[in-house]
Amino acid sequence: MTENVLNLLAADGEAVGGIQGFFVGIGNAIADSGSTILRILSSYGPLLIKALGQTLLLTLLSLVFAMIIGLIFALMNVGKNRFFNLIGTIYVDAVRGVPLIVLAFFIYFGIPVCIQAMGVPGFKLTALQAGTIALAMNCGAYMAEIFRAGIESVDKGQMEASRSLGLSYSKSMRLVLLPQAIRTMIPSIINQFIITLKDTSILSVIGFPELTNMGSTIAGNTLKSLETWAIIGVMYMIVIITLSRVAKWLERRISIEDKR
């Protein structure tokens, strides 16, 4: 319909040229793109939704494991045991020192070769498995730093008071330090969630059928790169903006609770 209106406008002037023509050109381009986007959405809609679902699944799985990994290495780093400190530091440095795409290739292509050589013929990792491991390891390293900073931000008197009552180190950590640390960590954790969600796009390189991978397929099939990537971008944006709104809301609620 927009197309028709614009065509009418164009036909109205005798000679369409100059500035007027320029605007008409833009108008036409937008109208064309608009209809292309609608066409893509109608034929690829279900596939796009499915791909978005895969992206969210991969994000969720990775985050769950990343939280566990992060907590373990953070606890290693804040403790006094030199050996655990060293392991924690090595892990964080190693993972942060490698680009995610390299890590993904290493796990997807490298690890199976290694395990096969160790006597498990035909061992393979699915793209989801490899992707989850790579993302969880990567995100876990950053999470470890967030947890470490959070725990260290709690006044050391809290640990002393808890220990002086006879509570063990681990009970003090679980009952006194972590609940207080988590409050200061929530904004950083959600920020890390968002980064991880975006990082799933990197895993299109190992063939995981997530949103960016689907984008490549659709762009290839339709030869409409502009419209396809605009759709993909907007889809990511919707999810991420929703997530940051939730983060803001959480942050506000916590600060209200603190003023109680």
Binding site: D155, E160, G166, L167
Partner: peptide, 30 residues
């Protein structure tokens, strides 16, 4: 040492109350 500390109360200069717990919860925790 944890067992021994149960028998030795300590009060600090900066109170060190558990900020995420109510007064009563602070007392009941240990």
């Amino acid at each position: 040492i944890n067992k021994a500390r149960e028998n030795i109360g300590m009060v600090f200069q900066h109170f060190n109350l558990f900020n995420h717990k109510t007064v009563l919860q602070n007392i009941m925790l240990a």
